[in-house]
């Protein structure tokens, strides 16, 4: 009787083939494999179950698992495509793909709209915008008077709400971003182009020939 140990890689729940993910996203197969190395690291940082929990996401961004942040909550909820409270590998790659330098600008604009449409009504309402400005002030050292916050929100609405109905719809948002492209600068992570250099160990675990 012998004792065998399988050398086949044990994948995390929600693992999807790199070739499939590469075909559906802006990533190459090698980049997807490198992202898997990052995903494994993040998904084992607090709860070792191969899935990214919100705490792990917060910890990766702030080095603090308990730091509440409205924007991290929104990003996590959008990454959690299946809405089951965790982010699996497929969701991680598909969501990060929007942040790839080669991803279509239209995808970045749409993602940012969903991010800021806090209550998912299909519009960015004035009270949502103000709530986000207040949240930003809480997390930063910036102190602005209530009047000043109102002024900034009013000015933004004057510029963005071209239909003048007191809310920003997707069409107005798109026009506004195209006039102010710096608004989606944070939707592009140049680092994603170098992901294979950051996680060279993907080569050791690769099961896909280079030619793919």
């Amino acid at each position: 009787m012998g004792c065998f140990s399988s050398k086949k890689t044990k994948y995390t729940p929600g693992y999807e083939e790199p070739t499939v993910l590469a075909s559906e996203t802006s990533f190459s197969v090698s980049e997807v494999e490198a992202l898997y190395e990052l995903f494994k690291k993040l998904s084992r940082s607090i709860i070792d179950d191969g899935l990214i929990h919100k705490e792990e996401f917060q910890f990766a961004l702030f080095r603090n698992r308990n730091k509440k942040n409205l924007f991290v909550d929104r990003i996590f909820d959008l990454f959690d495509i299946k809405r089951n409270g965790v982010v699996d590998f497929g969701e991680f790659v598909r969501s990060l793909s929007i942040f790839h330098p080669d991803a279509p600008v239209s995808e970045k604009i749409a993602f940012a709209f969903k991010l800021y449409d806090l209550r998912q009504t299909g519009f960015i309402e004035r009270d949502e915008l103000k709530e986000m400005v207040v949240a930003l002030l809480h997390e930063s050292d910036l102190i602005l008077s209530e009047d000043y916050v109102e002024t900034i929100v009013d000015k933004t609405y004057t510029d963005a709400d071209t239909k003048g109905d007191g809310r920003i719809d997707q069409e107005e948002w798109k026009e506004f971003v195209l006039k102010n492209p710096s608004l989606i600068k944070n939707m592009t992570l140049p680092y994603l182009k170098d992901i294979t250099l950051a996680f060279p160990s993907f080569v050791l675990n690769s099961e896909v020939p280079d030619s793919e």
Binding site: L115, L136, Y148, L183, I195
Partner: peptide, 26 residues
């Protein structure tokens, strides 16, 4: 100090919570 942007979305976009590059820090 840098001037405060009059565009609320520009201000919001500077949130650390929206800066995903931290995910890649070792």
């Amino acid at each position: 100090a840098a001037p405060v942007p009059m565009n609320a979305f520009e201000l919001i976009s500077k949130s650390q919570g929206l800066n995903l590059s931290s995910l890649f820090e070792k």
